[in-house]
Computed example of a mutant assay.
Amino acid sequence: MKLRLTAALGLSAALLLSACAANEQPAEQETTAAEETAVAEETTSDDTTTDEGTADEAPAQVEGNLTGIGSSAMNVAQTNWIAGFQTANPGATVLYSPDGSGAGRDAFMGGGADFAGSDRAFKPEENVAGAFALCTPESIAYDLPVYISPIAVIFNVEGVSDLNLTPAVLAGIFAGDITNWNDPAIAELNEGATLPDLAITAVHRSDDSGTTENFTDYLNKAAGDVWTNEADGEWPIEGGEAAKGTSGVVAAVTNGVGTIGYADASQAGDLSVALVGNEGEFFGPTAADAAAAVEASPVEEGREEHDLALEIDRNAPGYPIVLVAYAMACADYADDEKAALVKSYLSYIAGPEGQEVAAEGAGSAPLSEKLGSQVLAAIDAIS
């Protein structure tokens, strides 16, 4: 089944601002009806935000350069965010390099990036004061969920466009236990399909990848008797074909024969996408299901205020394989001007306009009103 992913979720965010104009006359001064009319007209022309507050006022423009490194899964969203932000702020330049989540975290810790993008949060033992070169010595990093998306299981098998898989069969394929496309375990789930006598080539990421960590976390929690490895950003087993970055996996599946892989759904392109489920119910990747899974996922216990690392619910209804990508920033930057620019950019991408831009451009699920408010409060706390 070739699925075209669209973002059908609406955005609900309210900016409730009010402005009051004080055009009062002293108590002892009498005014004529004409004077009162003049005052009312002056108030109307000068104070245009009585009903809508300052919502129509354009935010102050910012200038400067920002460098981000990290998640290739969120590259499409970042491309759209940067275009929108730079249009609104012609004096600002944002560069984002989709080198992978692990590369992004390393670069941010070492001072090579002003912010990072990662499909997993910093682990508690990583997120300690003094670990981040651009932050003050007392500062931790904030993990800010800004991008929610399903991970698509993409495949390229001649003559097969529809494919149903259970978690156990999917795990068996990537574990190397199921090696041929006409294996009875696959055939049983796809009655009537003509499955070729063809070797399966399972493609995985070669780099330290947050998408891999989310994918292996799902396999472990949904089919732990088959996939016994715990979640890991580095592919944990031998075999298969390795490719760098999301684009590398997509290219390997596209150009291969009998290939199957995993990638952020925004970059599946024209490849066929498998349905995944149990007990005869199979689901394709949708933004709505990704949003539902994240909505059911609490912030990890023990995290400091504004460090919003989520514990993703892998058993949520609907399509089960989702990722949350984080923007990572200092709680307190050593450079105040850099802090102001980071706050401006992150406020844009996490706000209603940025989330709508990502939904339209990348098919991601906008943050819920509750999570969006938490993220914006955390960004506001950056200093």
Rank of each mutant, 00 (worst) to 15 (best):
Ile382His: 12
Val276Met: 02
Leu16Cys: 02
Pro26Trp: 10
Pro124Cys: 13
Asp307Cys: 07
Asn80Asp: 07
Thr179Asp: 08
Phe115Gly: 03
Ser118Trp: 06
Ala381Met: 10
Trp227Thr: 06
Glu138Ile: 02
Arg105Leu: 15
Ser247Arg: 12
Asp56Thr: 12
Asp183Pro: 05
Gln86Ile: 00
Ala252Arg: 14
Gly240Pro: 05
Val324Gly: 11
Gly280Val: 04
Lys343Pro: 02
Gly240Met: 06
Ser364Tyr: 06
Met1Ser: 13
Phe174Val: 04
Val128Trp: 01
Pro236Asp: 09
Ser247Asp: 11
Gly351Asp: 08
Gly112Ser: 12
Asp264Cys: 10
Ala168Ile: 02
Ala199Lys: 11
Ala121Asn: 03
Asn127Arg: 11
Thr37Met: 13
Trp227Gly: 06
Asn89Ser: 08
Pro298Ser: 08
Thr44Leu: 15
Leu15Lys: 15
Ala152Pro: 04
Ala222Leu: 01
Leu144Met: 07
Pro196Ala: 15
Phe283Tyr: 15
Ala73Tyr: 01
Tyr345Met: 05
Leu165Met: 10
Glu191Cys: 03
Ala19Arg: 03
Val146Leu: 10
Phe85Cys: 08
Gly10Ser: 11
Leu308Ala: 08
Ser149Arg: 06
Phe215Lys: 09
Thr93Pro: 01
Ala121His: 03
Ala243Lys: 08
Ala251Asp: 12
Val169Gln: 02
Thr216Ala: 01
Thr54Phe: 07
Ser209Met: 09
Val157Phe: 04
Asp114Ala: 08
Asn255Trp: 00
Ile173Glu: 01
Ala222Ser: 14
Ala202His: 15
Ser373Leu: 12
Ala325Phe: 02
Phe283His: 15
Ser383Thr: 11
Glu28Gln: 14
Ala329Met: 03
Asp217Thr: 10
Ser97Asn: 14
Phe122Ala: 11
Ser347Cys: 04
Glu337Thr: 14
Tyr326Trp: 07
Gln267Trp: 00
Ile200His: 10
Gly53Tyr: 04
Leu275Thr: 14
Ala55Val: 13
Glu191Met: 03
Met1Pro: 09
Ile200Thr: 12
Lys2Asn: 14
Glu36Lys: 11
Gly363Met: 05
Glu301Cys: 00
Thr43Cys: 07
Glu304Val: 10
Glu230Cys: 02
Phe85Asn: 14
Thr67Glu: 12
Phe155Asp: 05
Ile140Arg: 13
Asp217Ala: 13
Glu188Arg: 15
Ala365Trp: 07
Leu66Gln: 06
Ala168Asp: 14
Asp177His: 09
Ser139Arg: 02
Phe108Thr: 01
